[in-house]
Each structure stands twice: as structure tokens, then as C-alpha cells.
Design a protein around this nucleic acid. Sequence first.
DNA 1: CACTTGACCTGTCCGC
DNA 2: TGCGGACAGGTCAAGT
Length: 316
Amino acid sequence: MPELPEVETIRRGLEDHIVGLTLTDIEVRAPKIFIGEPEEIIGEDITSVERQGKLLIFRLSGSKLMTIHLKMTGQLIWKPAMLVDRDPAFEELDPLIDNAVMPYSEEEVEEDDEVVMGGHPEKSYLQPLPHKHTHAIFQFSDGSRMYFNDLRKFGRITVLEAEDLPKTSFLERLGPEPLQSGFTAQYLVEQLAQRPRQPIKTFLLDQSNIAGLGNIYADESLFRAAILPDRLTGSLTAGEIRNLFDAIEETLELALAHGGSSSKDYVNAVGDRGTFLTIANVYHRTGELCNRCQIGIIQRKKIGGRSSHYCPICQR
DNA sequence: CACTTGACCTGTCCGC
DNA sequence: TGCGGACAGGTCAAGT
């Protein structure tokens, strides 16, 4: 699920709530998703919540740290003490909490889903937690909790020595952050030149080239740059590369401003959905009319094993 | 070496 | 209404 904008949105939400708290307990319900020993970090304080690419990094007061990768369907949801162990379906919720929490019911959720897919989500809700896809629960010193949910169990929580983090295979080959100074148009030109026979879509999804792009933002960036996803990198003109560089930055900034994308599973740290898909131009719009040219029909095609969406008129 | 496929999991959606 | 197959935002290992 989560790409850079979603993971960054979760990071910001968690940072607001858990930095400075002590981790008092961890309940691991699905052992295989947890690598390392949870006991080794119980009793430590959360000193910061950081992100590199799609990886969340929880810095702690001791020598260890914890990383969480959400992969396709992982969620991290924080609940204040007042909501822990309370089922919103049966209780009047305290209006003091930050976001408007709606009573949870089948009807309510369906309505919410429709609104999100169609265009204008206005309400958020919190699912009763834990549920059957909750695989780890973190308890904090103020009574609040963080729940790790993952329908597909692809996500991983890892505890390791802080000094070993940069040496992990994931971080060793992770490319630059697209919204930081290490990512420049010149860098993009150089990297593209190394793999001239690769489709540009495949290049964008490779985390060693750029950290944090996934299927949604790769497709949206290519639309914005007016480049077809199966173009070989070696065929891109200098102008197209410049456009692509700008498009990546603009797409990610726009997605961050919308709190990310929610097609199905994604919610932020307090259970709210993101609204980016309501303004997406190609992603998940197969068969629909192109917003820009009003002539093209959005197409879908497998490239490097991943479905890619594009407008055959706007993109060349 | 470059590129593709399969595995990891569970759920949903689509066509017949 | 039921059933089988395709598909889903990511990453890594194995195969071609």
C-alpha cells in the first residue's frame, strides 16, 4: 500500500503523539512478522520517528532501534488512552480528540468507502482494535497504544542495533530521497544513462534509483511528465528528463498535501484516509476519459510485471 | 549481467 | 448465487 507520501503522513502523525513516551510493553500476535527480540526495547523512550524511503525508523533511548516496513497492506494506528479498549460502536466518543471519530457500523463504513472512491471524504472513523489482522500492539507510558495491522502479513517489524542500520541490505542500496537535495535533475540524467534499455516505469520503481516511489506515484509522475511508461530510458530527451524530474517532485508534494492515497487499506496514524486518488489522473482509472485531453481513454498495461496506467493521447 | 517470475498472504472483484 | 481466476500499493530470491 504505502508509498512515500503515505509513510511520511503516518510518520508525522506518530511523531506528534509518541515521541517522548516510554514503550512499556509489546504484544506480538504473529511471531513471523517480528524480527529480533521485542523485550530488548521495552522500557526505552521513543526519541524520534524517522523515515527513509518507505521504511519507518523508531529511534530509542538505548542502543537498539526499531524499523517497520508496511509493504502492501500494513497499517500503524495510534489510539489515545481514552479510546483504548473501547469499542466506538457502543460508546459516545469524547469530542476532545483531534479528529472527528464517527460511530462505527457496517453502514457507516460502506458509506465512507463510497464517498472516498467518488470524491470527497469528510468523515474519519476508527475501526475497533485489535482485530484479526492486528499482529503487534505497542503500549506506551501514557496509556496510548500503537497497533500494527496487516491483512497480507508482508510487513515486517525489526529490532536491531542502531549502528547496524546503515549496513542493512535495504538501506545500503536505497537511492536518494526525491524531496531532498541529493535528488537533482543531473542525478536523474546520470542514473538513466546507466540503464538505457530499461522501461522508464521499471526504473522509477527501483528503490536504488529513487527512494519511495511506488506504482501509484510512478504512474502519476509519468502522466504529469507526458511520458509513456514503456519508453526506454535511453530514448528520453533532455527536456523529457527535466519534465520527469519536476513531475516527480510535484506529484509527491501534491500527494503529501492530500495525506496520501487510499484505495482500500491505507489509513494514517489516527485512522484517517488520504484523498490523493480523488485527483489522480491515471492510476486506477482504466477505461475512463482522460482529465486533461478529454479525448484519450486511460489504458492499463503490464510493464515489468506491474500494471501501469496511462493516457495514450497525452503521453508519448 | 539484465530482466522476469515466483513467493510471501489474504481478500475482493469480475466474468461466466 | 456460486465458482474459478485475476489482481492488489512492495521487496527479495531464484530462475532464464
